[in-house]
């Protein structure tokens, strides 16, 4: 790997200044993704600004029940937090479904949100990839794409976003708090990510100097009736093949409200607004859940080898919602 300078940021403003001044500087969280990418030659920062010790390392509960999660909180700590487990079980479940205990102990909330795709071509610098090397082509389209996107992808890139946590946060209407060149601002998590279109280089709308400081999760009255279910090729320590985060509010056999997001089917954590729309006011039955799944997945454009993800996502949503009704 190329030599680099390491510095530890003491506070947010100086961290931002350190990265804003230099095009080849990057923030470092737990390093579980970035350091791997540096070893592979995919990322070549000349300077790492370690933001994992910034004072954003606590989880707080606001009087209205909203969660305030520091960007430097480790994935393991967030998953274990009593308020998360009580009010948003799907978030704790999503975290615990990700990676391994060792990785979760290192991984931070900020780093988790900004981890890069696991597309095999992206990770191999001897091969073309539009995301890594714009204009070089997308070999995944004709090559191996079994676990890549069925929805939201483009001619230029068919990669998926790999995070489990981000899927739960997308369902929960989380808000990302940023410190940037021009000071602080906020962004709904679902607007943080961008679809690849003809410029797959950037996964998010962020400027390289934008520092994630916090994530807030508004209170959700039915957050306790929520679930994250992840389908994978082995029982643990594997990225999702498809996942779903869902919260359901049912009264008198009718869906009053719901939150649904899919993982591993799209370049972004995929908030299933069409499915939600179809469900509100519908009977809480398997048929209605299947219709909602169709409403969302009707837009899917699977590739040669990943069409199985469409029935898989449908089944997963129907089963998860059905179990939430019973729960």
């Amino acid at each position: 790997m190329r030599p680099f300078v390491y510095e530890r940021a003491e506070e947010a403003r100086s961290a931002v200044a350190a990265v804003a001044d230099r095009p080849d500087a990057m923030y470092l969280g737990g390093g579980t993704n970035l350091v791997d990418l540096m070893r592979l030659g995919v990322a070549e920062p000349a300077r790492l600004v370690d933001v994992s010790r910034l004072p954003y390392d606590t989880v707080g509960v606001r009087p209205d029940g909203a969660l305030r999660i520091g960007a430097a909180v480790r994935n393991s700590d967030l998953a274990a937090h009593p308020a998360v487990r009580r009010a948003h079980p799907l978030l704790a479940q999503a975290l615990l479904a990700g990676a391994s205990g060792q990785v979760r102990n290192m991984a931070t909330v900020g780093g988790n949100l900004l981890q890069r795709t696991r597309c095999a071509y992206f990770q191999d610098i001897t091969k073309p990839c539009n995301k890594r090397n714009p204009g070089s082509g997308c070999p995944a389209r004709e090559g191996d794409h079994r676990n890549l996107a069925i929805i939201g992808h483009s001619e230029a890139c068919v990669a998926t976003h790999p995070s489990d946590m981000a899927v739960a946060l997308a369902a929960l209407d989380a808000v990302v708090h940023l410190e940037g060149r021009d000071g602080p601002r906020t962004l709904p998590l679902t607007e943080l990510y961008r679809l690849p279109g003809d410029d797959p280089r950037r996964d998010t709308v962020l400027d390289p100097a934008d520092l994630i400081t916090e994530v807030t999760v508004p209170a959700l009255s039915f957050g306790g009736r929520s679930h994250y279910r992840k389908v994978r090729d082995r029982a643990s320590f594997a990225f999702a093949v498809v996942s779903v985060a869902a919260a359901l509010d049912v009264a008198g056999g009718v869906v009053r409200d719901c939150r649904i997001a899919f993982g591993a089917i799209a370049p972004v954590p995929w908030r299933a607004r069409r499915a939600e729309e179809a469900l509100r006011g519908a009977p809480a039955t398997e048929d209605a859940f299947a219709a909602a799944a169709r409403a969302e997945l009707g837009q899917a454009r699977p590739l040669r080898d990943n069409a199985f993800k469409v029935p898989l996502a449908r089944n997963l949503l129907v089963r998860t919602l059905t179990e939430l009704v019973v729960a």
Partner: peptide, 25 residues
């Protein structure tokens, strides 16, 4: 081992991609 037909090597050449059983399996 997934053969990368276009480039001619085994594509999934690490343990995050080439799966062997984890303890839970």
């Amino acid at each position: 081992g997934v053969m990368d037909v276009e480039f001619g090597d085994y594509l999934n050449h690490d343990f995050a991609q080439y799966h062997i059983p984890a303890c839970a399996d």
